[in-house]
């Protein structure tokens, strides 16, 4: 009896491999977090000292490498403009597609499977290919033909412009919105739809009055994720609308614009004197990060809530 007891209470034998591998995977996790922390801290510490009200509110002169006179107002405005215009296009299309997929589409039909495959593929297309698409389709095809129709072939729309960059980004972020909206639509208990239908509501009435109000947080998450993804993207706008320098803020959809992400690229690769540019480079990166991170953070918070709801149902 006592022998059994003592065996029972003996400390677990030290298992080298268990210790080794647990430690290794733990270290991998720690290493990734370390990278993340290093990048963020490096940028925050170096950027914070260089950032100022003057910096974020000034339209720079042609030589924006001069740390004393430069500013990033046009880039903030440009980046904000292009994501706002993008949102106006991508949210309705994305939400309606998600509604079709969850509320209308028969699960087994071929067309549903093709739509899903297309959404998945769209999510995996490299951002530079979106840039080429924007150039080939929006500018060289849609824009040029618009000019032929409206402006006697004078180049108004058939050149890089805010609208084309925004539309290109809208195509790129479409899967983000669809997936997030679908997730939140699926989290709504089917009982609510049944209750509404059993009261003699049509499908459309049920969607508009019961389903969509409930899905709103999910739709917002999708929008925010799309915006935060798009805000930092540079490759798709390279040929579709971004300008190296503009003396004034963009005022029209056919204008080009300056952009925070592109400006980071320009400052880090084109500077005549990288040591002098370093502070404003850090400050620009910090502004960009603050913008995208704040958005990401909100999205993650909302998504965690929606997921919890989903789990409670399952």
């Amino acid at each position: 009896m006592s022998k059994v007891q003592s065996r029972h209470f003996r400390a677990e034998k030290f298992d080298f491999w268990s210790f080794f591998f647990s430690g290794l995977t733990g270290l991998a996790t720690l290493f990734i977090l370390g990278i993340l922390a290093t990048i963020l801290l490096n940028i925050i510490v170096n950027g914070w000292s260089a950032i100022s009200w003057h910096f974020v509110s000034t339209i720079p002169k042609k030589d924006f490498f001069d740390a004393n006179t430069t500013g990033v107002l046009p880039m903030i405005v440009g980046t904000s403009f292009r994501v706002i215009v993008m949102t106006i296009f991508v949210i309705p299309v994305g939400v309606i597609t998600a509604i079709y997929l969850t509320e209308y589409a028969p699960n087994t039909s071929i067309i549903t499977r093709i739509i899903r495959a297309a959404v998945n593929n769209l999510a995996g297309v490299p951002s530079i290919v979106f840039g080429l698409f924007g150039l080939g389709f929006f500018i060289n095809f849609a824009g040029k033909n618009l000019d032929l129709l409206l402006h006697n072939a004078n180049a108004v729309w058939g050149q890089p412009a805010l609208i084309w960059a925004s539309l290109t980004l809208a195509v790129m972020t479409l899967p983000v919105v669809i997936v997030a909206t679908e997730e939140s639509l699926k989290a709504i208990p089917p009982g609510l739809r049944e209750a509404s239908l059993a009261l003699g509501a049509t499908k459309l009435e049920t969607i508009l009055r019961i389903v969509l109000p409930q899905a709103l947080p999910g739709i917002m998450t999708g929008g925010i994720l799309a915006v935060s993804r798009a805000a930092g993207e540079v490759a798709p706008i390279l040929f579709t609308g971004v300008a190296y320098y503009m003396a004034s803020l963009p005022a029209h959809l056919s204008d080009q614009f300056m952009d925070l992400g592109y400006h980071v690229f320009v400052l880090s690769t084109q500077s005549p004197n990288i040591e002098q540019t370093r502070p404003i480079l850090y400050a620009t990166v910090l502004v960009l990060l603050l913008l995208t991170f704040a958005l990401n953070f909100v999205a993650i918070l909302i998504r965690a809530r929606v997921r919890k709801k989903l789990r409670a149902l399952g």
Binding site: L36, I39, I43, S228, A231, G232, E233, V234, A235, G261, Y262, V264, F265, S268, L281, V285, L288, L289, T292, F293, N296
Partner: peptide, 9 residues
Amino acid sequence: GIPSVVVGF
């Protein structure tokens, strides 16, 4: 969430 241009930088 870190834009690739920032990683590149």
